[in-house]
Write a protein that binds this DNA or RNA. Structure first.
Lengths: 173, 173
DNA sequence: CGATTTGGTTGCATCACGCAACCAAAATGC
DNA sequence: GCATTTTGGTTGCGTGATGCAACCAAATCG
């Protein structure tokens, strides 16, 4: 059996991972954030297998995260550019990088710092805040059912929301 | 391509994904955030294969994200609990969920809402801010070399870039 | 026009993952 | 205290996912 997918899972994390969870996908998006646009940019920079890159780029385009635009003057030459949906992944990439900087590299060992282009100041760590701006931790959070809950959750309580909702779907392509 | 290339071995995102990038890993962490502690909790909630769950839990323990504590009264009975390192993944899980809520489910279709336990208010979307609290977008950010950059950038000859740029996914276990 | 770059596709080998069967120790029932 | 069930796995096997290398056509460059 192939990989389990979560097309119908009742959880935004699972659905995000369904789109982004492949090993290379977020690294491709990261490269796009740093300016890569061409097939060969991604391929050379990431060292990814070309057929896999083809699949990932196609997947990202299908999901509307990248847009494939023909820039050839007399035929086909493509650029992949971030869409609005793609640019809205900034908080995901930022928190991932910040976690890696803190827990893998360690404070003071960061290879790359993000700064405010205008002020030049380093961007402070992104944290979860309430409406008053107070930082929230895990214990400060309380999950509640949202408007889109009922579907696919006939037998589960909120606590064990994943119950049997991990629908399995056969692979695509 | 005149500009500096940031080797992803030198990038917190890649390093984070090296730890968290396996398909199931973040979903296991999510379940831990929602209160799961036992092997069978994760197994039943996620529907994950037991041997894979074994590998993923072991991996998370090795990386210090979960702690495996023996709670047996007369022998072995284990609980997996989030460490501080694990709890600090909250921003990552939150931004992932928020992206999925917005772009996969859509506004008003969220299956699960996160609220401030104290005030009951819904937690607003987590965004990247500068020191003044102003929200930053991709174009407002400027990457700079950090103190931990130089290491691992000595071998960046284009020829062997496939090997050096990204650590080949080595099988663990 | 010929050479090189771009943007792939195809075949093959390997590996990660799912599934089911099996197992030992701990808890539970009686 | 003995049998049964639950817990927390391990092992073997099959298949899809992925990496690697070779190949290719169209576009661009010299």
């Amino acid at each position: 059996m192939g990989r389990v997918r979560f097309d119908e899972a009742n959880c935004g994390i699972a659905r995000s991972l369904d789109v982004l969870g492949d090993w290379w996908t977020l690294l491709i998006v990261r490269d796009a954030f740093l300016g890569a646009t061409r097939f060969s940019d991604f391929q050379q920079h990431l060292g990814i297998a070309r057929n896999i890159l083809t699949q990932r780029l196609r997947n990202l385009v299908e999901h509307g995260i990248l847009e494939r635009v023909n820039v050839g003057q007399a035929g086909e030459r493509y650029e992949y550019k971030l869409s609005v949906k793609g640019e809205s992944l900034l908080p995901v990439l930022t928190t991932l990088r910040e976690w890696g900087d803190e827990w893998v590299f360690g404070e003071g060992q960061e290879p790359l710092l993000m700064c405010d282009r205008e002020t030049g100041e380093r961007v402070p760590k992104t944290v979860v805040r309430n409406t008053s701006g107070k930082q929230l931790q895990r214990r400060d959070l309380k999950p509640k059912l949202g408007p889109g809950f009922e579907r696919a959750n006939k037998d589960s309580s909120p606590g064990d929301s994943a119950g049997s909702s991990t629908e399995r779907r056969s692979k695509k392509a």
